[in-house]
Computed example of a mutant assay.
Amino acid sequence: MTDSTPRLDHVVLWVRDPVASASFFEKAVGLRPWRVAEYAEGKAPFCSVRINEETILDLAPLPLAERMEVVPGAAASAGHPVHHVCLSLPRDGFDALRSRLEEQGVPVSDLSHDSLGARGKAKRSFYFRDPDGNVFEARHYD
């Protein structure tokens, strides 16, 4: 039997410097980079970071936007704000992420409690920005 449950495969973030963004997501957020060397060598149009085995964030350079006319008006989406992307972590991963961000001087919001998400009410959550201004929320449910 095949699992037909929809899943989030990837989110494309428009960034100024994909290699620097991959480094930020690796060092500050703890995500594993993917295809960075290929991108740096000109063998891939963008690089990515892996959230889990099924989901990645593609780090697309802004000049790529002009070639992204997949539907009318799509190229104009570069820099168009998405409010935020939320990462759900276990409690220890949540605490480790907040500590890494603070150690690297990344501003973080105050903690929120009991905010509603895909799995019900999250015990704690907070927000931060990547170097390109994309907003992320981190939360844990346990």
Rank of each mutant, 00 (worst) to 15 (best):
S88D: 14
V49E: 08
R50W: 12
C86Y: 00
E53M: 09
R124I: 02
V15M: 04
W14S: 14
E137D: 07
L116Q: 12
V70G: 08
E69Q: 14
C47A: 08
G42P: 11
L116H: 09
L62G: 00
M1A: 15
R50I: 15
A40C: 01
D110Y: 02
A78I: 04
G120F: 05
V85D: 06
A37D: 15
Q104D: 12
F136E: 03
H80A: 13
F24V: 01
S48T: 13
P63S: 12
Y141P: 02
D130F: 08
D92C: 04
M1P: 12
V19Y: 02
D132K: 02
D110Q: 12
L59D: 04
E66H: 08
R98Q: 09
N52Y: 06
G30V: 05
L116D: 11
N52E: 06
V29M: 01
R139A: 15
D9C: 09
S99Y: 01
L87K: 04
S48N: 12
A22Q: 06
R91D: 09
G93L: 05
H83G: 13
R91V: 07
D17P: 05
A138L: 05
R16K: 15
E54V: 11
E69H: 11
H83A: 15
K43E: 15
R91I: 02
N52P: 06
A74I: 00
G73N: 08
S125F: 05
P90Q: 08
R98I: 04
A37P: 01
P107E: 07
K43M: 14
E53S: 14
R7L: 10
A20T: 02
G105D: 08
S115P: 01
S88T: 15
L116K: 10
G117S: 12
P45R: 08
V106A: 06
D17F: 04
E137A: 09
P18K: 00
H84Y: 11
V29N: 03
G117D: 04
A22C: 06
V11A: 11
F25R: 01
D9L: 13
L111A: 11
Y39H: 11
R119H: 15
M68V: 09
N52I: 05
A76R: 09
V49Q: 09
E66D: 13
D17N: 14
S115I: 12
C86N: 10
T55P: 03
L62K: 11
C86R: 11
L57H: 02
L97R: 03
L62P: 00
P45C: 10
E38A: 13
A122W: 00
K121T: 11
E26N: 14
V19H: 02
K121P: 06
V108E: 01
Y39F: 15
S109V: 00
P18S: 04
L101R: 10
P61S: 09
T55L: 07
R139H: 07
I51F: 12
D114R: 09
H80E: 08
D114C: 06
V70D: 03
K121F: 10
L8I: 14
T55S: 13
R100A: 11
K27N: 12
P63W: 03
E66C: 05
V29S: 00
L13E: 01
E54S: 14
L57E: 02
G30C: 10
V82P: 00
V135D: 01
P72M: 01
L57D: 05
W34N: 12
F126G: 06
G117R: 10
K43Y: 10
L62V: 13
T2D: 07
R119K: 13
L116P: 00
P61C: 11
A76M: 05
